[in-house]
């Protein structure tokens, strides 16, 4: 225990001896980690949006004006019996208007002043998940339903699904790209900081070695210093992201429902832990890279 506290003390002494250097490198790391975490959050939200949209109606069957309630009910029953359909729901003009108003958020009151006749009756059709993602299946089903006499139009949402899926993919790729970049930045910044630390403490290293310190004893505090610095930078970045998201939510709260979200999703605990562990490894890796190449140690 004494050895561990001694090791920690030497690592923290190293951080305290050059506060500006460490503050600068920590700020650089935090900026890199923040851009990564922000992109990851955007990708997570985009995925959430996509999941919610896919979870909503995959097909909307608009009913012709003048169709009776009985005919609509029979149609709904018939649609529900089709192979691959997992559920149906009649959306009356009033329900359609209320949903629209809810989606409009702060502008919902304005939407509620519109007449019900502006919203045609429709039936939401949910497909089982395998068929919902198959464009050909959706189109074939929409074609069959569209030929029915009481059906005015069938919406398959292809454009939306396509765009959102592409955006989600781009978001995920960007997050991974930025993640790799942030790791690289972390390794390089920590390596440079540790190198500067070794240079600044070369007399101390010399004295330690004169006194019989093993290479491991000399290196460990520098390794720990690199790990601590990167981890602290990640913690700082996650804290900053949380604050920024809170502020954005306050500012854009009225717009969030328009996007089909109840609020911005934050990174889950597993991802947060993975990010912190990743930053720790990057810090240790950067320090190790430098120490391996220095002849002082």
């Amino acid at each position: 225990m004494h050895k561990v506290t001694h090791l920690l003390k030497r690592a923290i002494d190293g951080l305290r001896q050059r506060p500006w250097l460490h503050a600068l490198s920590m700020a650089t790391l935090a900026a890199a980690f923040l851009s990564f975490a922000a992109t990851l959050t955007a990708a997570v939200n985009l995925d959430g949006l996509l999941a919610r949209w896919i979870g909503a109606a995959e097909l909307t069957v608009y009913i012709k004006d003048g169709t009776s309630v009985d005919e609509t009910a029979r149609l709904t029953q018939a649609l529900g019996a089709l192979d691959g359909v997992s559920g149906t729901e009649i959306v009356s003009p009033k329900t359609a208007r209320d949903r629209f108003a809810a989606d409009m958020g702060a502008y919902g009151d304005m939407a509620r002043t519109l007449p019900e006749s502006a919203f045609p009756a429709s039936i939401d059709v949910r497909l089982d998940s395998r068929r919902a993602r198959d464009q050909a299946v959706r189109h074939a089903l929409a074609g069959r339903i569209g030929r029915l006499a009481v059906v005015d139009e069938v919406e398959v949402y292809d454009d939306w699904f396509g765009r959102l899926s592409a955006l989600s993919l781009v978001g995920r790729l960007a997050a991974w790209g930025l993640g790799l970049l942030a790791l690289l930045v972390a390794v390089l910044v920590v390596a440079a900081t540790v190198r500067a630390g070794v240079f600044a403490r070369r007399r101390e290293i010399e004295v330690l070695k004169l006194s019989g310190a093993t290479d491991r004893y000399v290196r460990l505090p520098f390794l720990l210093e690199g790990g601590l610095e990167a981890t602290a930078a990640m913690a700082l970045a996650l804290l900053a992201l949380d604050l920024i998201m809170g502020r954005v939510q306050d500012l854009a709260g009225d717009l969030v429902p328009l996007l089909g979200l109840f609020g911005f999703a934050k990174l889950g605990p597993t991802i947060v832990l993975a990010l912190i562990a990743g930053s720790l490894l990057a810090g240790l890796g950067g320090a190790h890279l430098t120490l391996r190449r220095l002849k002082e140690i």
Binding site: E204, G212, D215
Partner: peptide
């Protein structure tokens, strides 16, 4: 390294860690 722990060494230029206290320097070995 372990063998060196049974040695003490003194140089003309002292080789102290100049920004540490006297006791911290003496405590190193």
């Amino acid at each position: 390294s372990v063998l060196r722990r049974s040695m003490g060494v003194v140089f003309q230029d002292f080789r102290l860690i100049e920004d540490l206290s006297v006791e911290a320097n003496v405590a190193v070995p």
